[in-house]
Amino acid sequence: MRKSRLAKFPLWLTYTFLYVPILVVVIMSFNASKNLFVWRGFSLEWYPAVFADGAIMTGLQNTLIVATSVTILATAIGTLMAVGIHRYTRGGLIRAFAIAPALLPDLLMAVGLLSLFSLLSMTLGLYSVIIAHTTFAMAFVTAIVLARLANLDPSLEEASRDLGASAARTFWRVTLPQLAPGMIAGALLSFTLSLDEFVIAFFTTSPTSPTLPIAIYSMVRFGVTPEINALATMLLLVSVLTVIGAQRLTRITDSL
């Protein structure tokens, strides 16, 4: 008994370390005082204040535009790339390049893309962030769909072709439905990654079109305010719900 308690001590230490900071933010988001370090009773006043804040709302709107576009683009391109790699290449080089943006330091991708955009004389804005985020999100989609393809039974496609279906019809009716769970997982991952991504967006956007993480960064840099607590709590809730949702969804699609 005493031994098992001792063995569980690191668990308590780690989870305390991981969750106390988050708990502090959540508790302080309900604080009635403007002072961030003194508890003055329960209040919900900071929540409406978040929605009244122009900088936050602009950031949120930009982020949603970027994340939605990135999800669609990355899922489509990433899936096609995975299918192409699976069918037509044997070597690891193209595979490695397709997955590289997911492994390389984000800072390197950020400065590289910034250099590329400036070489092409592109003005920076939301669309450059969309391109930049798609580059690394599609790497994750490709990796996930490739893993799914590796477990696919090729005889199903062969059967479809033998029964007279065209290549396109086979792809739509046989291959894609089998890839769906991987694509959904990839899409969810792309959305969450783009939603949270800071470094690449920081380098590839213009000052006039900040995403939400950039808006938060500017706020935190110029001092902490109670609204950030409320915003952070809401973001936490969204993340938790997305993770739970993704788990449920993959379980449902896997059982199909």
Binding site: L36, D196, V224, A232, L235, T242
Partner: peptide
């Protein structure tokens, strides 16, 4: 779970 929450938020928590 903390890994899936915004990293600026998590850094900000340490300021508090």
């Amino acid at each position: 779970l903390p890994f899936w929450t915004n990293f600026l938020v998590r850094t900000y928590a340490w300021i508090l």
